Amino acid sequence: MSLGTVGLWLYRNGGGERIQRQIVEMLKERNIACVTGLDLKHAQVKNGKIICNDTAMDDLDAFLSYNAGEQTPYQRYLYQMVSQVTPTINNFDSFAIAEDKFQTSHLLTLHGVRTPDYRLCGRDDEDGLKQALNDFGGRMIYKPIDGWGGSGIVKIEGHESLKTVLPFISQTDLRYFYLEKFVNYDNTDFRVDIVDGKFVGCYGRKAPRGEWKTNITSGGSVFVREPDQEVIELAVKAAKILGLEVAGVDIIYDREREEYVVLEVNTIPAFATPEQEKLGINFNSYKIDALVDLLERTVHYKAREQTIKVA
């Protein structure tokens, strides 16, 4: 008899299937069963149960949702409900905060973690947009609150540039706008992976020549990069403040402030792809070990809770 059951939904491209097999095999060795392919897109709610691929999500001992590229409002909504009865990784409350760029920056700043200077402006606050541009020295970045992969990010340089962007902004259905001061940096960053409060790996990303976005989906490239202790501690602290079990913390060096700042915190940081591993980015085994340890502890914790309730 297994100690418990873990539900998994992992991305399948970029070596994801191989990663999933390793996780399943390692959990099996620890007497923990796995159910894979639990894409909440296919889930139905009936008779007090959330059923996905014939599995009652409420009966799982843990659920790992790890697919950044296929998130829909329906999946997110059910993920929130599942998290009320089944331990989820990441926990939904922290996941929701980290997915929101304003909430992330604001919470980190309140706890002493430096981020780029930011503003939140209402939809019709054109004066606020202009004031932000002035305060930021004439260069700022507009970011969707919940975007990922560099999608929808616009660099605004000067008031003429703002005038060009305003018609686009006015046609969106957004209620508010998140703005960041453009940071003077070397167009590279650190992607630091944290699992269960521990540093498990890092690599660097570099923007294409003449560009400033380092995201892979925006044409950025990866390279081997070893972080110093300051970068590691900053990433660990950011993940802890947000309450994330798993995080990919993007850190850049602000040349004006002469200090590291946290640019973003990702809730589903990808494992190294086979191509990246060939470059020498070899942290997958450490990350998988930490993730499996976390899942095992989560299963044991739920088992203890159930024992206490029965007693």
Results as ranks from 00 to 15, higher is better:
K130R: 15
C121V: 15
Q80P: 04
F92P: 01
L108H: 06
F102R: 00
K143E: 05
Y142Q: 03
R123G: 06
D135K: 12
S83A: 09
R119T: 06
S94T: 03
L129G: 00
R114V: 03
F136K: 08
G137P: 07
Y74R: 13
L133N: 04
Y74V: 08
R76Q: 15
L120T: 13
Q71N: 14
Q75T: 08
N91V: 02
T72M: 11
S105G: 09
A96V: 14
V85M: 07
L108E: 02
Q131N: 14
D124T: 15
L108R: 01
V85L: 08
F102E: 04
E126K: 09
L120H: 12
M140S: 02
M140L: 14
Q103C: 11
L107M: 12
L129S: 00
Y118H: 11
L129H: 02
G122K: 13
S83Y: 09
D124G: 08
A132Y: 10
Y142G: 00
R139G: 02
Q103R: 14
R139F: 04
N90I: 10
D100M: 00
W148Y: 13
T88I: 03
T115A: 05
G122D: 14
P116F: 01
Q71P: 01
Q131E: 11
I145N: 02
Q103F: 11
Y118F: 14
M140A: 06
Q84L: 15
